[in-house]
Design a protein around this nucleic acid. Structure first.
Lengths: 350, 350
DNA sequence: GGTATTCCAGGGAGCGCTCTCTCCAAGGTC
DNA sequence: GACCTTGGAGAGAGCGCTCCCTGGAATACC
């Protein structure tokens, strides 16, 4: 950094604070780091010196010796094969309420620990950029939001030995901690609710099929319906954006006009589907019942408001942060996973 | 950080690479940093040593001496007085397409320079947290998205002497670089378009009135209408979220059912207003014409699609990044500002 | 009263890098 | 051939901090 005080001089060092207080560097260091074996009078003297000089520890010097930076990265990753889409990656992740909830949940845990969170988008062509950032030791660990099966980032982080926690079950088995929600159970809740309100022609809009979570929701939905004798369930895949949900709904209803119950793999796409249904003149929920997934704020902003499957993203992110901190603290590399339970939130759309 | 190679040993140092190649630390350093005065053969030898050992420079050690970190922060700040709102800050900023466009624009400039961008939300109670992060020297400079007049962060960064660039004209005069768009001109474009399509009862939904940009858009709209003899212009303030736009529109139409032309200070609120109008049974654009602001992706996802005022956010962010880099490179602290031009994008809603 | 023990401040090494300075060798000049 | 210049490698200091170790003073123990 190039920090210089307003008057042009450099920011004070430990040594200068020590001189001000008439003590040794070590003593100031002890005060800064809250070591208890310091005489209270001296401690106060040093504290005054710190205040007087406006001292702030130099992070580079500190982390050179402690090998800690007290910050972790939230990396939002994107696989290769989806970069060609209409809506740019950055638009997508910064439009979906998902990221805000994750951030909020993680900060809830990290801030009290004095750990900073830096958010980094990592769309595919810039993967190496982010990887370099991580390898350089800017952060102590990584919260990785990775969607695709094909994403090499989890494996790479693993190889690098950087502590990391995943936001979902990895596509390939990997010795990493992760949190997840019971995707199949969520889908089952949706299926059973649609059946319970008397719908017979069910269909689903899934997420991208290279994502384990999308696969699980789709499989869970189909499995639940199979139990009730529904062998064939029309489906169309979107990419979790509103526009893709709208598009998928159009396709689905063009091919299967008889559909009267729709499970959509996230709320944003459900909102798009609602739009499509409105354009098609289908009344929701009278003619078509719609169930979303996420229970994001988008679900409340729809008309009609979305019945949806709640996943506790904030708690999940908080747990990710906790898992990461425990990995950073100890040298214990034993990966753990924590699975959360979804639940049905009944509103107007189904 | 606690990086250890998979096999448990620490990552290699310059010294080790030098030993591998049989040269001095200095030579390896020169190769790493692309200094030209190195024998090509030696350079290649060193390069092989780097590859073989998997060497990555230790950032802390480097920045301890260079006083550079090669990363900048994108800080999204929030003033004190707005934290009490219904929709949490993190939800708001990670739902508005705004941030994604800013990030994209900044990365466009920063990545080719090898500069990393870290995104940090800074809602008011956590200001000191972020400030500490910045003071510790994690970053070389700051791109500051600050909305309110009352936000102390610009002043604080100024006092700290951290290079920073603002995303809008600061509320109080400050020796900082900033970019902005001609807000008043944008509002004028909206006003004149609404008049041009024959609307006579105009109103506006503004942003929070503690934001200079909101004030400017409101003032610009009023001024343009005053020229055409409209003395009184009903207005209601939102907070740039969809829900607040919906709410504001309801209030406005309850008090002034005669409104036939509406200028909304951003697209997200305009989308909310469209929702309200639909609920009220007012046809857009036939009965009420609506003009938004931003030309965000949200404008395309509305029904009807929004006529809006385009502001080139990506280019503005890129310019912010350029201004910041020039401030970081040189010691020249002369602040500069760059003002962009808005333009009207005609679609369906007006 | 002498020795063992505890407590707490200071000294010093060293984290991994950059960067200046020095030095050597090769080439050029008169 | 003696001198100077230049290109390019190495040596060494030092960035600001932590942390181990040492040592002196204060206290406890026999």
């Amino acid at each position: 950094m190039t920090i210089s005080r307003p008057d042009g001089q450099r920011s004070p060092t430990l040594e200068e604070v020590a001189e001000w207080a008439g003590v040794s560097r070590s003593t100031v260091s002890r005060v800064i780091n809250g070591v208890s074996t310091v005489d209270p009078d001296l401690r106060e003297l040093v504290q005054r010196a710190i205040d007087a000089t406006g001292y702030v520890p130099n992070l580079a010097a500190r982390s050179l010796v402690t090998r800690r930076t007290d910050s972790v990265a939230l990396v939002v990753s994107e696989p290769d094969d989806r970069t060609e889409q209409s809506e740019p990656f950055l638009n997508r992740i910064f439009t979906d309420p998902f990221l805000g909830r994750i951030t909020a949940g993680a900060l809830e845990v990290l801030r009290p620990e004095g750990i900073h969170l830096v958010i980094m988008p990592a769309e595919s062509p810039a993967h190496h950029h982010v990887l370099r950032y991580l390898r350089q030791g800017h952060v102590d660990g990584v919260l990785l939001i990775s969607s695709s099966d094909e994403d090499p980032l989890p494996q790479q982080l693993c190889d690098l030995g950087i502590p990391a926690v995943l936001s979902a079950r990895p596509g390939k088995p990997l010795p990493m901690s992760y949190v997840d929600v019971e995707q199949q159970v969520g889908a089952k809740l949706a299926a059973e609710h649609l059946l319970a309100i008397g719908r017979h022609h069910l269909a689903t809009i899934s997420g991208p099929l290279d994502m384990p979570s999308s696969q699980d929701r789709l499989a869970g939905f189909r499995a639940a319906l199979a139990v009730h004798g529904h062998a064939y369930v029309p489906s169309a895949a979107g990419n979790f954006t509103r526009a893709s949900g709208e598009q998928a709904a159009r396709e689905l209803f063009a091919a299967h006009p008889e559909i009267d119950g729709l499970f959509v793999a996230n709320d944003l796409m459900a909102e798009g589907a609602l739009q499509a249904l409105r354009d098609l003149g289908r009344r929701v929920p009278d003619e078509v019942a719609v169930v979303g997934f996420d229970n994001s704020i988008a679900a409340l902003q729809c008309r009609p408001q979305l019945t949806t499957i709640h996943q506790p993203l904030e708690e999940m992110a908080a747990e990710m942060a906790r898992l990461l901190l425990s990995r950073i603290g100890k040298a214990d590399p034993k990966p753990r996973s924590v699975i959360f339970h979804p639940r049905l939130i009944k509103r107007e759309s189904a």
